Amino acid sequence: MQLIETHIVPKLEKSIRLQEYAVGIFKILPTKSGIKKAIKKELILVDGKTTSTAQFINGRETIELFQPKESVPFKRFKLELEILFEDDFLAIIYKPSGILVSGNSFATIDNALPQNLQKSTQTDAVRPRPIHRLDYPTSGLLLVGKTNSTIISLNKLFEKKEIQKTYHAITICEMNSFGFINFTIDDKNAQTEYEVLKSVISKRFGYLNLIQLKPKTGRKHQLRKHLLAIGNPILGDKEYYKENLILNGKGLYLHASSLEFIHPHTTEKITITKELPKKFTKIFPEF
């Protein structure tokens, strides 16, 4: 085996399981599932000894990551990203539509982050890591953690629903001016609040509606599934759609337009917005 990265654990206020702490501390191993696999393969050592996912980290340990000699070196994906906010702890970037946030693909936002963001000077600095996901065809704001403590804190804010996300979408067919959708997804509670900002008549779709969405839960494909459930699927959606009402070639008209939360370290209120893409304003030019 070959040593590829070493991490010195700073002083910690309380103990934390290795599988939780190690998320994001290595440049080539950013995910929790990746950490678990590496531990099981005995590629992660703590103070020179093999370990398990159940081990607790108390502070001052040396965590080493190894790789088999035959492994292919990690490559970074070159993509210039628009950065809307950045400090030593976190960043908010704009994710274009048509690209994955993370996953097995090489061409992901995750792989483009290190060369777009400034390296944190904090003692628990880690490889920049997306805190949440946006679907492949969705554009908009993406929150990124740059230190281990920040990643943990932001995940807790999401769990407590203390990060407010606002989306905009263009839907088809006539719909109520506002509403609250409360349909389960995968047998789990899912809630979405929406408001129609403007509607225009469409020969093909009946109506096109510019709507604002505030998800109260974070289920997979929640907004897309909820809007189809009330009979108003998102324009350009090829997965959740009405028969014969698919728009080809323009992509999905869903945009993550706003993030609002309290900064976990500075306690500053962060409110970042991103204007609607041009394909939206071509239909609704006043926005």
Rank of each mutant, 00 (worst) to 15 (best):
T150N: 03
Y241W: 12
N116Y: 09
L90S: 04
L29Y: 02
T184E: 14
N155Q: 07
I283W: 02
I211Y: 09
I270F: 10
F85A: 07
Q222L: 07
I185S: 04
K75A: 15
L45Q: 02
E193F: 12
S102E: 13
E80A: 14
K11R: 09
Q115G: 10
Y136H: 01
D110Q: 13
T123C: 05
R127V: 08
K160W: 09
Q191I: 08
T62E: 15
I270Q: 01
F158E: 13
T51P: 11
K203L: 15
K165H: 12
K278W: 01
P130Y: 02
K214H: 13
R17E: 10
Y94H: 03
Y167N: 08
G34Y: 00
I99A: 03
K146V: 14
K14E: 15
K161Q: 11
V46A: 08
G48W: 01
I163H: 03
A125L: 02
F89Y: 15
T51N: 10
Y241E: 11
N155P: 04
R127H: 12
F77K: 03
K282Y: 13
Q115R: 12
L134K: 01
L252K: 03
S177R: 10
Q222D: 10
R219I: 12
K269N: 14
K220F: 14
V72T: 12
G103E: 06
I131P: 04
L157F: 07
E239Y: 10
D135Y: 04
L100G: 07
G218Y: 12
P264K: 00
K95R: 06
N189C: 07
Y136W: 13
Q115K: 11
S177A: 05
E268M: 09
D237P: 09
R60E: 15
Q19D: 13
H265T: 13
K37G: 03
T217Q: 13
I185Y: 00
N232T: 06
P215K: 09
